[in-house]
Design a protein around this nucleic acid. Structure first.
Length: 991
DNA sequence: GCAAGGTC
């Protein structure tokens, strides 16, 4: 064993540690919260190379990799393929044994692995059941990390092997998740061996030199990286669970859905990744719905000669202004002689793709084979497992200089189809080889996806296995090939001062295109022209067209959106996409294009109408920024957790207050059921007692929509325990007074009786106010009553007045479907609350003054108007109604926001950025709109019909040379039938 | 029954 402790000073230099540093050095490992039983133990750092060792006794070291394949590969490299393999308790995680020397220290190495994360984060038992608590409580509910059932064998292996070890060397992937898994392994191992010296091996590729270097330069685990992941996990769990429970319980029983599923299994989930993914799909769909075709005009010219036909395009592209277009066109018609002004010949290169990353594999498989990303990854995983391709989850799109690329090509020479291409690649005379380009991404853990074993097709392979293997091989061969070479000719002509051009391309050398059959490079022939040559065009036409909406998002598009916005990782993106389909949020057509379902659209619409951008990627982006800050040490884990969760809880409470928006959005698409929603049954109220029937949840005082009061169990519908109260109650408030008759052990008699859940059996008294006219004169209008069964007054009033419910009047608790047990009710000890805010459940303020009312996640729709409600404060100058905010799609103002009246008649609009400048607000026409305008939506299919005009360009026809448009049309700009767009008097806004 | 992240 090493006797001397070393540590690093601030400059990173190794030095002998002082006693204080051994204890307080921040690099010293241990997270006290993870292993409360053991005090933090200082760590040793290996001395620099050449430092004499304290002793030569062999160290026993347990090495742990993130996956079995890495354990096998690293053990193979370090042992030079002389490791002995034996079984562990987990069938997938073998143990390799061999001797190895680290800086002169002889070691007996045991090398095993985990399978990704060893632990999960979950709520404590008390909060696990959906009805056990208010979803808002999940923002502060206690959570814990634990090893799930299916990983217990791995834990046992680790603990069994590490007992007799002195060192623990962590070979997890070198990213934040890997660092977090490292600490999970540490926690499990130090439970049984607190004297471990713990090291981190950092490597970026499974290459001999790199692995040996990593072993000889062991480092320490990085607590900050692990902290960042801890924070992310906790945020994801709390946010996901709270919103999922909330919206599921609110909506699932309230509406008849248009898809076949068992209601009981329907979960309307929310997640910080799945919702933005849905958001991309909905946003594109809305963009298409809101698109209004715009007319444009263009001049085309063609010329036939003996060599063929050349088609010339107008340099101006197209004009939206008809007057300009027709004027120019008439000039050309009057002087139609074309003069060649330039003939340009250029060599053009088309480069092969970058080495293959996971996202590119998914996108290309979707594009070339219409294979879903989820299926692609499944097939790729199987090819990887059987050794035919490299690890398929990688962000890396450049090969390390140390990779033997030619050896990989060499293997493919035997293939009957592409073998000859591989041979040409290796033939110096063919000059086809080119070192692959770099896409600029490197996850430092895995190389780009490439073939690792030759195959001409295996008997067990499906067609999809063939396709993915072929794609990986062809992509790799393309990467190491020369780009395609083409000769491009461009001819420019002048007609009456207007410029036109035409181009043709001849492919000189296909190079990589010979192997990469998935890509093409169109060639076209153009006749020969010479400068100053003149000719009369064969045709010269003024053609019209219309702008078209973008297409629905394809799977490849969706992956690109997610990648760009940082939603998910290369290993999880396909899961998020699949989740949209599994949850009935979106559908995918045969062309892999996504359409939101009614449910998906309604959910996004609901949150959008609330003014929340929970369906946008900003929340994830903020979390990512916070994680980076924790990784760098500029913020603490607890700091970002406290602020992030406080913010999200406020957002949650606010969203719940605005749940009517979700309801309204759902009503656009679905019929209501007559069933009361779980959420309605569970409107949060004051806790009266612990439910004596299910013993799992609290019973709370609630007011039903009909105004009557009841005390019901929060575990409804699992538990149907309820106490109906007299129908003559006008007000009811739970007090902090406890009934001494129904609360055994109360008043200090036994110091409080505690059941096995640690909950005392208190029944709180309720302060009732009765409507004077509805109770007999000999009863007081105010009464401090108990629902525990002891209150005779309450019983009598219930008999006299009835409960106003569908149940028979009666004081005794009536349980829907079951007999009540009212004698053993308990409520949590210490849950006596005074003046608790019903929004955030904090004391010291009322709900109306709750600071959570304002959240930074709430979007201000009226930028510059200082309207805290988020509603539009711009009113129509004609009808006075609130305006909606839209986005212009006109040529000159694309993307610019404006307010417009929802009424078709008013035509009021004002630019958003002109508010407060004294400009705008006139009765100008409404520009074309783009984006979600939910205020005026009707049922799906009806939306936008009135303002989309005639559809996609079928109504746009050739405009005659006299300039007379086809009759029956109206101005595209303002909709006025008295004139056309080019003559619209109100075009100022479009300039 | 809920999240997202590893990976067999």
């Amino acid at each position: 064993m090493l006797e001397t402790l070393f540590c690093k000073d601030l400059s990173g230099q190794l030095k002998i540690a002082s006693k204080k540093e051994k204890i307080f050095n921040p690099r010293v490992l241990k997270c006290p919260s993870r292993s409360p039983k053991l005090p933090p133990k200082p760590l040793q750092i290996l001395p620099p190379a050449g430092t004499p060792m304290a002793g030569n006794r062999q160290i026993r070291a347990l090495n742990v990799a993130e996956k079995p394949s890495v354990a096998k590969a690293v053990a193979g490299i370090l042992s030079r393929n002389h490791a002995r393999m034996r079984e562990g308790r987990s069938r997938y995680n073998k143990i390799f044994e061999f001797d190895y020397t680290i800086r002169g220290q002889p070691c007996h190495m045991l090398f095993t692995s985990v399978i990704g994360h060893l632990m999960e984060l979950g709520f404590d038992e008390r909060y696990k059941k959906w009805h056990s608590c208010d979803p808002a409580d999940l923002y502060q509910a206690s959570v814990h990390k634990f090893v799930p059932e299916d990983k217990l064998d791995i834990k046992r292996t680790l603990q069994q092997e590490v007992r007799n070890c002195q060192w623990l060397i962590l070979w997890l992937d070198c990213d934040r998740e890997g660092e977090n898994i490292a600490f999970e392994v540490i926690e499990v191992c130090t439970e049984v061996n607190r004297n471990l010296n713990i090291f981190r091996a950092r490597f970026s590729a499974l290459i001999d030199r790199e692995i040996h270097e990593a072993a000889q330069n062991l480092d320490r685990p990085n607590q900050l990286f692990a902290d960042a992941v801890d924070a992310r996990q906790e945020m994801d769990l709390r946010i996901g669970a709270s919103f999922t429970r909330f919206q599921t319980m609110l909506l699932k029983d309230a509406f008849s859905f248009d898809f076949a599923t068992e209601d009981r299994n329907l979960v309307l989930s929310y997640g910080p990744c799945q919702f933005p993914t849905l958001g991309f799909v909905v946003e594109r769909y809305w963009e298409i719905q809101a698109h209004e075709p715009e007319e444009f005009w263009t001049i085309n010219c063609s010329h036939n000669s003996e060599e063929g036909t050349a088609s010339f395009s107008w340099i101006r592209g197209h004009l939206f202004d008809y007057t300009c277009a027709i004027t120019i066109y008439e000039m050309c018609v009057e002087e139609p002689t074309a003069t060649v002004t330039n003939v340009r010949q250029q060599e053009k290169l088309k480069y092969p793709p970058y080495p293959l990353s996971t996202i590119e594999l998914e996108k290309r498989a979707s594009r070339y084979f219409r294979m879903s990303s989820e299926h692609t990854m499944k097939v790729a995983e199987e090819l990887y497992q059987s050794g035919f391709i490299s690890y398929p989850r990688t962000e890396t799109d450049s090969f390390s200089a140390r990779t033997d690329l030619r050896a990989i090509v060499q293997e493919q020479q035997a293939h009957p189809i592409w073998g000859s291409y591989a041979q040409r690649l290796l033939d110096p005379g063919a000059a086809l080889w080119r070192n692959p380009g770099s896409g600029g991404h490197d996850d430092k853990a895995h190389p780009p996806i490439h073939p690792t074993k030759f195959s001409a097709g295996e008997s067990g392979w499906s067609q999809d296995h063939q396709k993915i293997y072929e794609l990986v091989v062809r992509h790799f061969l393309a990467c190491v090939s020369q780009p395609a070479v083409g000769a491009e000719t461009t001819v420019e002509i002048d007609i009456a001062g207007e410029q036109f051009n035409a181009s043709g391309r001849v492919i000189i050398s296909k190079n990589y295109l010979d192997i990469y059959r998935f890509e093409t490079w169109g060639g076209s022939v153009i006749p020969t022209y010479e400068i100053r040559q003149q000719f009369i065009p064969t045709t010269l036409t003024l053609d019209s067209g219309v702008t078209r909406p973008p297409p629905l998002l394809s799977e490849a598009d969706l992956l690109s959106c997610m990648d760009k916005a940082g939603i998910g990782t290369d290993a999880t993106m396909h899961d998020h996409i699949k989740k949209l389909l599994d949850r009935f949020y979106a559908t995918k057509d045969a062309n892999t294009r996504f359409t939101p379902t009614n449910l998906g659209e309604a959910l996004v619409m609901g949150y959008d109408d609330m003014g929340y951008e929970l369906w946008k990627p900003y929340l994830r982006a903020k979390m990512e920024d916070d994680m980076k800050a924790v990784s760098l040490g500029t913020k603490r884990k607890n700091e970002i957790l406290a602020s992030g969760l406080q913010e999200m809880k406020a957002c949650f409470l606010d969203a719940r207050m605005s749940k009517v928006k979700l309801f309204e959005a759902m009503e656009v698409f679905f019929d209501r059921t007559n069933r009361p929603t779980v959420e309605e049954q569970q409107a949060v109220g004051e806790v009266v007692r612990r439910c004596g029937l299910c013993q799992q949840a609290d019973m709370v005082l609630k007011r039903k929509p009909d105004g009557n009061f009841m005390v019901g169990c929060l575990a409804y519908p699992q538990c149907r325990n309820v106490v109906w109260l007299p129908g003559s109650i006008s007000e009811a408030t739970v007090t902090s007074n406890v009934c001494s008759s129904c609360s055994p052990g109360w008043s200090g008699m036994c110091g409080g009786i505690t059941n096995r859940n640690g909950i005392t059996g208190l029944v709180f008294l309720i302060h009732f106010k009765f409507r004077r006219s509805e109770i007999p004169p000999n009863y007081n209008a105010e009464h401090l009553g108990c629902i525990g069964g002891c209150d005779e007054t309450l019983r009598q009033l219930t008999e006299i007045c009835g409960t106003g419910s569908r149940n028979l009047p009666g004081m005794s608790a009536s349980v829907r479907g079951r007999t009540p047990t009212m004698s053993s009710g308990n409520i949590p000890a210490g849950n006596v609350r005074h003046n608790v805010c019903t929004r955030c459940r904090e004391t010291g303020h009322a709900a109306n003054d709750c600071p959570s009312l304002v959240s930074t996640f709430r979007r201000s729709r009226t930028q510059g108007t200082n309207n805290p409600t988020g509603e539009s404060s711009v009113s129509c100058s004609s009808c006075g109604e609130p305006c909606v905010l839209r986005t212009a799609n006109t040529a000159n103002n694309r993307g610019r926001k404006f307010y417009t009246c929802q009424s078709q008649e008013c035509g009021f609009f004002v630019w958003e950025d002109m508010i407060g400048t004294g400009t705008g607000g006139t009765n100008a026409p409404r520009p074309n709109s783009r984006g979600a305008t939910t205020a005026s939506r009707g049922r799906r299919g009806e939306r936008g019909r009135g303002r989309r005009g005639g559809g996609r360009g079928n109504d746009v026809t050739f405009v005659s040379a006299t300039g007379e448009p086809v009759s029956g049309r109206r101005c595209f700009t303002c909709g006025d039938p008295s004139h056309f767009a080019n003559a619209c008097p109100n075009r100022e806004h479009d300039k």
